[in-house]
């Protein structure tokens, strides 16, 4: 479904990704692990079109999307839960969700019911300002907002960051249910627990490339992740 080949990207003149290859598909949640600064967030931003790609290709369902605008990629079914949640702090929970469905026009009641069923806490907080939610609640909102666009590929950038273990477990459970509904998952994480719970396929990034790749159960236990953190 998502095929990334020989991707190079960065900021200014500094290259961060040096020819990265990666695939993601429904029914096989993929986790991308790696130390800080290895290019995980850059990868997310490149896939969603927030930063331009220097070279290489991003294909979705066989179509080249490397040069499309972020809006066009959303329309094709890519949604990102960005690092640090990035909810709209001064808007209500409901308006945040409406924005998630922005490209589809006004969301229908069934859309809202669906995400509120997945995250009951959001139903209680409907009229509350998003900035006042707790970190875990904001993460749920960011997830729910991403789902409002009815994505076929959901990218999550460090959703466990700053969350208590209980909230991490909630996120894990939600992601699993989303995956079961047929959405391809690309999870960028440092948190081993979340990675192990959700991931079926694992990729370890090092030096802006995919260093190790394989079934999550093998890769995560192989010590490759620890090795990458130590810079081997």
């Amino acid at each position: 479904m998502l095929e990334i080949s020989d991707l190079r990207a960065g900021y200014g003149r500094m290259a961060v990704l040096h020819g990265l290859d990666l695939t993601a598909m429904p029914g096989r949640p993929t986790v991308v692990m790696g130390a800080n600064g290895v290019g995980k967030t850059t990868l997310c931003r490149a896939i969603t079109g927030l930063i331009p790609v220097w070279s290489g290709g991003i294909r979705l369902d066989g179509h080249d999307i490397t040069c499309l605008s972020p809006a066009q990629r959303v329309r094709r079914g890519i949604a990102l839960v960005p690092e640090g949640r990035q909810v709209f702090p001064d808007m209500t929970v409901r308006d945040n969700l409406r924005l998630g469905a922005y490209l589809r026009g006004e969301p229908g009641p069934s859309d809202l019911e669906q995400v509120e069923a997945l995250f009951p806490i959001l139903a209680d907080r409907r009229r509350q300002t998003a900035g006042l939610l707790s970190g875990g609640e904001q993460q749920m909102l960011a997830l729910a907002r991403a789902l409002m666009s009815r994505p076929r590929l959901l990218i999550l950038d460090e959703p466990s960051q700053g969350l208590a273990p209980k909230a991490v477990a909630q996120v894990a459970e939600a992601v699993q249910r989303i995956s079961e509904s047929g959405v391809a998952i690309l999870l960028v994480e440092q948190n081993m627990t979340l990675a192990e719970t959700v991931g079926e396929w694992a990729v370890v990034l090092q030096g802006g490339r995919a260093e190790v790749e394989g079934p999550a159960s093998t890769v995560l236990k192989s010590g490759a992740v620890e090795a990458s953190y130590l810079g081997h």
Partner: peptide
């Protein structure tokens, strides 16, 4: 950035 991600 988040607005861009919403497809605005």
């Amino acid at each position: 950035d988040a607005a861009l991600l919403m497809g605005i």
